[in-house]
């Protein structure tokens, strides 16, 4: 078996220290596995940013103070920190287009989903890509993540503006037109899925539409929490 990430042959050396860590049908090697950093507690109870103290981070406080955005997003759950190794892998996966790399996170994605959301009957909604980006890349990275989770997926959002966030200020970005459009009403609580949580603006724009379109609650799930 070759490591999906570095292509080296995986040696199965079972020792006491790794007996319980990587899954036995490991598709990545020990050395690649140890480079991945799971988000640990304590973290912001809304956006999963790692924090030294406190319950809610400054950014989320700001969102919650704003009447038009309060409670739009119940909470975000992220799997990994955006460390150097992760940046490198995400770049190869998303920008170079090595689609299969997402498989290396399958086990952790499923585990974290189970931990936080297994009790709820959720509809998974991936953040959509623009037509242009989609034809360039050949896959939607958010859908690739959602597809690994054992829950119903429906692509009810579409993108009306491109992805480029340009150099606008936070205020401009937040108050600009919503880049998404809702294709059909929803009645179940929704779990939005995306690759990165950076400022939370994209996810909140999507969440807002979903709530207006009937979703009783909107959560989000991202592969990494950056920033």
């Amino acid at each position: 078996m070759r490591c999906l990430n570095c292509h080296e042959i995986i040696l199965h050396q079972v020792t006491w220290s790794n007996l319980f860590s990587p899954p036995s049908d490991a598709i990545i090697c020990e050395s690649c596995f140890t480079q991945l950093e799971r988000i640990s507690m304590p973290q912001c109870s809304i956006c999963a940013r790692p924090m030294a103290r406190g319950k809610i981070c400054k950014d989320c406080e700001r969102w919650e103070r704003d009447e038009s955005w309060r409670g739009i997003l119940e909470k975000n759950v992220a799997v990994f920190n955006y460390n150097e190794a992760m940046k490198n892998i995400v770049a190869r996966w998303k920008y170079r287009g090595d689609y299969i790399l997402i498989e290396m996170f399958k086990y952790e994605i499923q585990e974290v989903f189970q931990l936080h959301f297994s009790q709820q009957d959720l509809l998974l909604v991936p953040i959509p890509l623009s037509q242009e980006r989609m034809s360039e890349r050949g896959f939607n990275q958010a859908l690739a993540i959602a597809a690994l989770i054992k829950a119903p997926v429906r692509e009810v959002l579409t993108r009306i503006h491109g992805e480029k966030q340009s150099k606008k200020s936070r205020k401009e970005r937040v108050n600009t037109e919503n880049p998404f459009q809702l294709l059909e009403q929803v009645s179940k609580p929704v779990l939005l899925v995306d690759d990165l949580y950076t400022t939370g603006t994209t996810l909140r724009h999507a969440a807002k539409l979903l709530k207006e379109g009937g979703a009783p609650a909107v959560y989000s799930f991202t592969l990494v929490r950056s920033g």
């Binding site: 292509h7 170079r96 287009g97 090595d98 689609y99 299969i100 050949g138 896959f139 690739a144």
Partner: peptide
């Protein structure tokens, strides 16, 4: 060092750094 995209098209992983 080959894998497939969602539409089934097989791509080369070996030279992907030069554009897939």
């Amino acid at each position: 060092l080959f894998a497939s995209l969602p539409d089934g098209a097989v791509y080369c992983r070996n030279c992907i750094m030069m554009g897939r």
